[in-house]
């Protein structure tokens, strides 16, 4: 049986009346490198297109090298695609506010600043805040991720989960149009990952920020998402977009429901089909 949203039908909206908030249209990207004096192209992304509703949470799931991180760099405007275009709220990414959370929290935060001052960096970047208001506002964001009592700590005193909570608070403090999270919990163990997923869902639902979330854990990808985008191996193409029929708010008990397993299996099947089309014959 074909899943509801297969590779050829990806331009389906969950609500057909509303305008998409993020539009990714026909993105292709190749790394160019020299090999024995010959210029070679290494295709990383191949005509990737999808759309996200305002406030939607989409996870991207795909094998290593499927260009997920490259796609994020393009969506965030750090890198230009070779073909295609990205629109966030109708504007190019360079004009949108991106709240980015990296996997490597140790090298993305500033160790010479305290926890609260790291969050303050995002407020300084907003550029519209009085200096005196910044500290208090930053504390408010830390409260949202339950890290207020760690405000004056330094990062080496924090665990991985705590550091990523602060990273989420910092991204949130930028008052972003879009959240981009690149495998934020993959360095954490299962129990902490579960806690962090619930924390993140809480932040997301309260602030209604459109979110793209790269995951390499299938349970995480399904549990968080409204829709899961499954990417094929390099060069990354959209294999399938799979809607998640679980209700909100999500609860850990949903991890054992038949709906969860069915969706998980659909994602896994799509993932395997992607591998077969690439390496099959």
């Amino acid at each position: 049986m074909r899943p509801a949203f297969s590779g050829t039908h990806f331009l389906c909206y969950t609500k057909s009346t509303s305008m998409p908030f993020i539009t990714v249209r026909d993105i292709s990207y190749s790394y160019i490198h020299m090999q024995k004096g010959i210029r070679r192209q290494n295709a990383v992304l191949d005509s990737v297109s999808f759309e996200a509703e305002k406030g939607e949470l989409i996870t991207l799931f795909g094998p290593n090298g499927s260009g997920k991180s490259t796609l994020f760099r393009i969506i965030s405007g750090l890198e230009d695609a070779h073909t295609g275009e990205v629109r966030i709220g109708g504007t190019p990414p360079a004009r949108a506010r991106i709240g980015f959370v990296f996997q490597d929290y140790r090298s993305s935060m500033l160790p010479w600043r305290s926890v609260v001052d790291n969050v303050a960096l995002a407020l300084e970047a907003r550029g519209n805040m009085k200096h005196t208001a910044i500290g208090k506002t930053a504390l408010g964001y830390l409260r949202q991720v339950k890290m207020e009592e760690y405000a004056d700590r330094r990062f080496w005193e924090l665990s991985g989960g705590q550091s990523q909570s602060v990273a989420i608070a910092r991204a949130l403090a930028y008052s972003p149009d879009v959240f981009l999270l690149d495998e934020p919990f993959s360095a954490l163990d299962f129990e902490i990952t579960l806690q962090m997923m619930l924390l993140f869902l809480d932040v997301w639902s309260k602030n209604k920020i459109t979110t793209l979330f790269i995951s390499h854990q299938i349970e995480e990808a399904v549990f968080l998402a409204d829709r899961v985008i499954v990417l094929s191996p390099r060069p990354g193409r959209i294999q399938e977009i799979i809607p998640v029929p679980l209700s909100r708010p999500r609860h850990p008990s949903m991890l054992t429901t038949p709906e969860f397993f069915t969706t998980r299996n659909n994602v896994l099947a799509a993932f395997r089909r992607g591998l077969q089309t690439s390496y099959g014959s």
Partner: peptide, 22 residues
């Protein structure tokens, strides 16, 4: 660290700010 510069660029910090803050 490249990641810190990337974070700074995503915050659209000015070159001067990137210089003295990072």
């Amino acid at each position: 660290k490249e990641l810190r510069l990337m974070a700074a660029r995503l915050f659209k910090l000015s070159n001067a700010k990137i210089f003295y803050a990072i």
